[in-house]
Amino acid sequence: MDETATNGGDEVDRIVAAWRRERPDLDVEPLTVFSRVSRLARHLDRARRGAFDRYALETWEFDVLSALRRAGEPYRLSPGVLVAQTLVTSGTMTNRIDRLEKRGLVERHRSPDDRRGVLVQLTGAGLERVDAAMSDLLDVEARVLDALPPAVRPQLAALLRTVVAQFDE
């Protein structure tokens, strides 16, 4: 068995060692990275959901509200831009806007440039909710990063950017 897996390694080390033992014909090196990325993503998802739950928000609600917030004053975007930024279909976005509007977090306005167009805008309640949730989220994520020295965080961000870039093209 791999010495790392028996002397203080993590669960991924144990999984990799088992695969190396059972299938020595396979190069399991990708598992050493992507199994950790996957496990981290699950932990982050739980932590993010916790932050959003404290503000009675679903993850998808935060996604829409934060896209509007990032747009800057007057915190208004077209549904098409929201679709592009949140990677959902237009039908899904319509449903999401309807639900957020019923909760008083967004409102629809006619586009001043196109009589048929609609713009979605944060309400005061939506702005307060997304700002509070964002502050909480950043506290949660900063605690996760406490495991790394501040000097290496930009390197990690750059490496992850390189890997993710192939999907964002």
Results as ranks from 00 to 15, higher is better:
99 R>I: 00
65 L>T: 06
117 G>W: 01
121 Q>D: 03
1 M>P: 14
45 D>F: 12
37 V>K: 07
123 T>V: 00
38 S>G: 12
140 V>I: 12
78 S>C: 00
20 R>K: 14
52 F>V: 05
160 L>M: 15
52 F>Y: 15
39 R>Q: 11
44 L>R: 12
76 R>H: 05
137 L>K: 08
70 R>F: 00
63 D>Q: 13
15 I>R: 12
95 N>G: 10
155 Q>R: 10
81 V>M: 10
125 A>C: 00
91 G>E: 14
168 D>T: 12
55 Y>C: 08
2 D>H: 14
55 Y>Q: 13
5 A>N: 12
18 A>Y: 13
148 L>K: 05
156 L>P: 02
12 V>Q: 11
83 V>E: 14
71 A>G: 13
21 R>N: 07
86 T>M: 05
91 G>R: 15
142 A>H: 10
7 N>L: 11
80 G>K: 06
140 V>H: 09
109 H>V: 01
104 G>N: 10
132 A>F: 06
142 A>L: 13
78 S>T: 08
152 V>D: 10
146 D>W: 03
156 L>D: 04
156 L>Y: 11
121 Q>I: 01
17 A>D: 15
102 K>W: 03
2 D>V: 04
7 N>M: 08
1 M>N: 12
1 M>S: 15
167 F>R: 10
137 L>E: 15
137 L>P: 09
74 P>Y: 03
153 R>S: 01
26 L>C: 08
83 V>R: 04
130 V>L: 09
76 R>E: 15
4 T>Y: 13
84 A>T: 09
50 G>I: 01
118 V>I: 11
6 T>Y: 14
93 M>G: 07
29 E>A: 09
4 T>D: 15
115 R>W: 01
3 E>T: 11
6 T>H: 15
26 L>H: 13
46 R>Q: 11
100 L>H: 05
22 E>Y: 02
84 A>E: 15
82 L>K: 04
102 K>V: 05
70 R>L: 10
169 E>L: 11
149 P>W: 01
82 L>H: 05
72 G>T: 03
123 T>I: 07
167 F>I: 04
66 S>C: 00
149 P>D: 12
123 T>Y: 02
112 P>K: 06
157 A>E: 14
120 V>P: 03
160 L>C: 11
17 A>E: 14
136 D>H: 10
63 D>R: 07
141 E>I: 07
6 T>C: 07
90 S>G: 08
41 A>D: 13
116 R>G: 02
12 V>H: 12
111 S>M: 01
117 G>H: 02
73 E>H: 13
128 E>R: 09
71 A>Y: 05
103 R>S: 08
65 L>R: 03
121 Q>C: 07
